[in-house]
Simulated scan of single mutants.
Amino acid sequence: MIVLPADTRETILERAREGDPDEICGVLGGEYEPDGKSRVHSQYPTENVAETPRTRYEIDPEEQLAIFERLENRGEEIVGFYHSHPRGPPRPSATDEAQATWPDRSYVIVSLEPLVIGSWRWRTESDGQFERERVGGD
């Protein structure tokens, strides 16, 4: 399970609406609890630098590295990433699955039609498959 505070959820939803028709993306910082739950404390919006931002997302590697350093300086872990599917479902596309490189991190996906937030974890112990996880709030 990933715990997204209400203000973080609203910020991500608003970014997704404002970014339409392009996909938006960002990084989630926080902590892992002993029961495996991840709790989001911060979100870092990033620019989508994909060649086709209406159907793909890509975080600039230098921007991503700078965010990782900020998280480390704050004592937070990388608990996941988020992006939107303006015209698609809140589940990983075939491209999302093929490009997943962070095992045991959450991939939060915002669908605008209908407006839904889904979350998935890419698990190495399940042959690199995505597993749906519950999204909770504070």
Rank of each mutant, 00 (worst) to 15 (best):
V110F: 07
N73R: 08
A98M: 13
G80H: 05
E14L: 14
E47G: 14
L28G: 04
T95S: 15
N73I: 00
I12D: 12
G88T: 09
V49A: 09
G29F: 06
R132S: 14
P89K: 12
T55W: 05
D7F: 05
I2R: 06
T124S: 12
D35N: 15
I109R: 04
C25Y: 06
L112G: 04
E58K: 15
R134K: 15
R9A: 14
N48E: 04
S42L: 06
G137F: 06
L115W: 00
P34S: 13
I24G: 10
G137T: 13
Y82G: 09
H41V: 02
E51P: 05
A16H: 10
A100D: 07
R132N: 11
W120P: 00
V40R: 00
G118D: 02
K37W: 02
V108P: 01
E33F: 10
V110D: 09
Y82I: 09
A94S: 14
G88V: 07
E113W: 10
S111G: 15
R56C: 08
A100L: 09
R134I: 14
P89Y: 00
E58V: 11
Y82L: 10
A50L: 07
D138I: 05
P89H: 03
R15K: 15
D20L: 08
V79E: 02
G36D: 06
D22P: 00
V79Q: 01
R17K: 15
W120N: 05
E58G: 11
R74D: 03
G30F: 05
G75L: 04
A94W: 02
D96I: 05
I24C: 15
V116H: 07
I67W: 01
P90Q: 06
H41S: 06
P114M: 12
A66W: 04
E47M: 14
A16M: 11
V79C: 01
L4W: 03
V27A: 04
